[in-house]
Design a protein around this nucleic acid. Structure first.
Lengths: 198, 198
DNA sequence: TACATTTCATGATTTAAATCATGTTGTCAA
DNA sequence: TTGACAACATGATTTAAATCATGAAATGTA
């Protein structure tokens, strides 16, 4: 998102996290800007009975958790390393300066936020009311365009576990499993070696 | 959002819409920036069987429908006048120039997008999994802080119809009615003259 | 290799919200 | 003031997803 050179010239640190590490907690006040160098990060909530809802999964070159930085609010969700990963970490004040001084950075922040808002709008409409089949297909299609997933011989491989699909759509694993089998029968997707192709 | 003077000096028009008018349709390519002078506007989707999902309701001084302007994408939802209203209408190119040239405008756009992303995150987590009671309470509480609703003697008056509450949370009217009665019994809210107070 | 853990899978049962039906109350305009 | 329409209300019934239970397959690791 923000070019490496700029980050480095503004005192950004590089920090490593192990799979499963929490980068920040829901309810924390933000003190840093984060941008992924390698690995994947998810932002998610846990409700009262422990069920997880994944707000989004982020990949190298993407940033996450900026909105509260601009609003002086606490984080609405946890950030957790999905795999071992390395991040740029830039203190809040340096980040805000960087944004103010640099028109191209603030434009790219706008585009990034607009993109994520778009994703949320699309998914919100699906999740709120639609049947499991709709939710999952929308998730697959959106993941494909959003994350630029590679096309293979059998279609785009969706690199999500059944549990992640459930947590991204608000369904239960069993429902996901049954639904994607139904989708396979309708030829909407292929399942090869337990992986979903669209 | 954007100061009146700036809008006027950039060729913004003022346009009137009657209650129920569609300002733009889902699937349209955006050609204008919109900012409300008076009245309320909702953005919403209709699913296959006609059920509406309200993405958000917007009030005077707020803008809506910007994300696709920055992304060169089509609108993900319809914009409909909830009441008679008057809007500033600024052509896309003038708007993008205004944002590029004016650091304070682009900052306020960022804050606005961050704010809405925050709302979507909070609601997504609720809607995805939680019971009707949670969904509605979150909606009420968020509406109160987000829309700066006036506090009256009996609490904050939630100015939404049962149907709107349903369409904002993805529930059915009947479920909303039954749930808010339950919430009243638990003293979470008051219902006076059919209006909900929190 | 063996063992533990995660992921996937499937059947039986429960349950809460959707749906259907119908009626009441409130509001606005002719 | 009446009549039409929107909003609110409530009971009965259906239904689809959650839940519970249990096991197999795959994956990682000591």
């Amino acid at each position: 998102m923000i070019p490496e050179e700029l980050l480095e010239s503004h005192n950004a640190l590089q920090k490593k996290y192990a799979k499963g590490d929490t980068i920040f907690h829901e309810g924390d006040l933000p003190v840093n800007y984060f941008q992924i160098i390698s690995g994947d990060v998810k932002m998610s909530n846990f409700n009262d009975d422990g069920k997880e809802f994944i707000q989004g999964i982020f990949h190298p070159k993407q940033s996450f958790g900026e909105p509260p930085l601009f609003l002086n609010r606490v984080y609405p969700a946890n950030a957790i390393a999905v795999s071992d990963c390395e991040l740029f970490v830039l203190p809040k004040s340096s980040f805000l300066n960087l944004v103010k001084e640099n028109a191209s950075v603030s434009l790219s922040i706008i585009e990034n936020l607009a993109q994520r808002l778009h994703y949320k709008s699309v998914m919100a409409a699906e999740i709120s009311s639609q049947e499991p089949e709709h939710r999952l297909l929308k998730l697959f299609d959106y993941s494909i365009t959003f994350f630029k997933i590679e096309k293979e011989a059998d279609g785009y491989r969706i690199d999500l576990t059944r549990q992640q699909m459930a947590d991204l759509t608000g369904l239960r694993v069993e429902t996901v499993i049954r639904t994607i089998k139904g989708l396979e029968k309708k030829n909407e997707i292929k399942i090869i070696n337990r992986k979903v192709y669209r």
